[in-house]
């Protein structure tokens, strides 16, 4: 984009550096047009002022989850953040996601998330039901469909204060993986019980439901209300509710929930 007289200038302070040099904020003046997003401005800097600026991006349509960063201190997708929505009287400050180790400039190492992901028991359908016999109704699956919207931008992990500010003695999986676990736990065909993992290995008790993850989700998934709290309630069923515990001791199984329910689409014991 050429610098023309019709373009206004916006000032951006962009984090530049590596873990070794500690980094610094470098100010750039960028000519802006109506509709420009922060990623456009970064691309202009890359093309015209700093070709070595490291920025991770891909689709530029808020669907790949690559361009996550912190703009004016708030985790956001830079491709979805319009410059016109940011205060004009101060420079736009662009920093990498602060919860993850810095690689260079605006790029961070998010591989920790993939390690956490591998610890979650994957989808576990019933062994006695062949895949072609799987049937379920829309009402059974719509809760889970919300969680499938996740684009793994890791903004929720970035803003989660447990991962950002705390030193936990036990692992905490973070909101992204509580969403994934909820998508499996609440699935009508899944038979695995992840509540022991959620309590111990996943550290769901570290979450104090302050809802920052929900506030930053670009897919508007109600992470806290629809994923984390239902899982916390299931963990409470298993470990902290004396009536539920007594029921299991008497009858030897969960009073309700995933295991032991009929396969969706097949007739149940009451003939319905």
């Amino acid at each position: 984009m050429p610098v023309g007289r019709t373009h206004r200038l916006r000032h951006l302070r962009v984090f530049r550096g590596t873990p070794e040099d500690g980094g610094e904020l470098v100010e750039y003046s960028v000519p802006v047009q109506e509709g420009m997003v922060v990623l456009d401005a970064l691309h202009w800097i890359q093309a015209n002022r700093a070709p070595d600026l490291a920025v991770r991006w891909n689709c530029k349509a808020a669907k790949c989850g690559s361009c996550s960063a912190e703009v004016n201190g708030r985790p956001t997708l830079t491709c979805k953040t319009r410059l016109s929505d940011l205060p004009e009287d101060i420079p736009v400050q662009v920093e990498p996601m602060r919860t993850f180790p810095l690689v260079r400039d605006l790029v961070t190492d998010v591989s920790w998330n993939y390690e956490v992901n591998r610890r979650i028991t994957p989808f576990t359908p019933p062994e006695d039901a062949p895949e072609e016999a799987w049937r379920w109704q829309q009402e059974d699956i719509e809760r889970v469909q919300e969680f499938r919207k996740c684009i793994e931008c890791f903004l929720c992990q970035d803003i989660c204060h447990v991962l950002r500010n705390h030193e936990t003695r036990n692992p905490f999986m973070g909101p992204r993986f509580l969403v994934r676990a909820a998508g499996l736990e609440l699935h009508p065909m899944d038979r695995a019980d992840r509540t022991p993992y959620l309590r111990d290995g996943g550290g769901i008790g570290y979450c104090n439901i302050t809802k920052c993850c929900t506030e930053v989700c670009p897919e508007h998934i109600k992470i806290t209300d629809n994923a984390i709290i239902p899982l916390k309630e299931r963990v409470a069923d298993t470990y902290y509710d004396p009536v539920q515990v007594a029921w299991r001791k008497l009858f030897g199984r969960r009073s309700e929930g995933g295991s032991g329910q009929p396969i969706p689409g097949q007739p149940s014991a009451d003939g319905s």
């Binding site: 009402e139 059974d140 329910q261």
Partner: peptide
């Protein structure tokens, strides 16, 4: 919320 299957009965 405890139910995994809403259509099973």
């Amino acid at each position: 919320g405890r139910l995994d299957c809403f259509s099973c009965s």
